[in-house]
């Protein structure tokens, strides 16, 4: 009997140290503010991401739209006001490129660059930071530098083949949600003319995991009409 008790206790103790299951669903509210030439544009949305790669986005302002994407790049954009839908298949629209989806899958390491064919071409250290350079087989593509702190990307720099910095991305405010680390604040600065640049601030809030929100299962109504495309009319 004593031996059985020991086995049960050891089993329970081992189970206590087993990692919790990864999140199956993550939702978040997102606010994107873009400033260019003194003008500000705001987009607010909520994202609903599931572990199978399905991503539903509800755009709230300035226009109400729904988008649905999956890992294969199958994308739908739905206008609930006119009951119209646009469908497209494109790698660039894959849910795997979304930040929440990347964080959920634990693949934030390359910020989704591998999906576009980028590979690590160099690694070094500087003042305690790890720096990785990503290059593409096509020399016309930008070179990208990602800097890591505590194994999390905090900085990303795009450089043109001519060596000019095109844009910079700063990721900060990392918080843990279950097994997922998500940066709650992202700032993108794109360099235009010598006198002006564009600044985009993205803030994530209201992050929830494994809730039963019905929007995770949102689908375009069966009676939705295709969005009229001018090319098709011709």
């Amino acid at each position: 009997m004593g031996l059985i008790h020991k086995i049960i206790c050891l089993t329970l103790l081992a189970a206590a140290f087993l990692p919790a299951g990864a999140q199956r669903k993550v939702s978040a509210d997102v606010e994107v503010k873009t400033v260019a030439k003194g003008k500000l544009s705001t987009v607010t949305k909520s994202v609903y991401c599931t572990s199978n790669g399905r991503l539903v986005t509800l755009y709230k302002t300035p226009l109400k739209y729904y988008s649905i994407a999956n890992a294969k790049g199958e994308y739908q954009l739905y206008n609930p006001k006119t009951n119209e839908v646009m469908s497209q298949v494109d790698k660039a629209l894959s849910s795997t490129t979304d930040l929440v989806s990347l964080c959920m899958s634990g693949r934030i390491d390359d910020l989704g660059l591998g999906f576009f064919g980028y590979q690590v071409s160099g690694t070094d250290r500087e003042d305690g930071y790890v720096r990785k350079t990503f290059s593409h087989v096509d020399p016309t593509y930008h070179k990208i530098l990602i800097v890591y702190e505590n194994y999390l990307p905090i900085y990303c720099e795009y450089t043109s083949p001519e060596g000019k910095t095109v844009s910079r991305k700063y990721l900060s405010g990392y918080r843990q949600f279950g097994r997922m680390m998500l940066p709650l604040r992202i700032t993108d600065i794109s360099y235009g003319s010598d006198r002006d640049s564009t600044v985009v601030r993205t803030i994530y809030s209201g992050v929830k995991t494994d809730t039963d929100d019905p929007l995770f299962d949102f689908s375009v109504p069966a009676d939705a009409k295709p969005m009229k495309l001018e090319a098709e009319a011709k």
């Binding site: 949305k45 576009f116 844009s167 991305k169």
Partner: peptide, 13 residues
């Protein structure tokens, strides 16, 4: 607009 210029990559290229 809704993808941030294709995560900045579309826009940059």
């Amino acid at each position: 607009t809704f993808t941030g210029g294709g995560l900045g990559i579309l826009w940059s290229v």
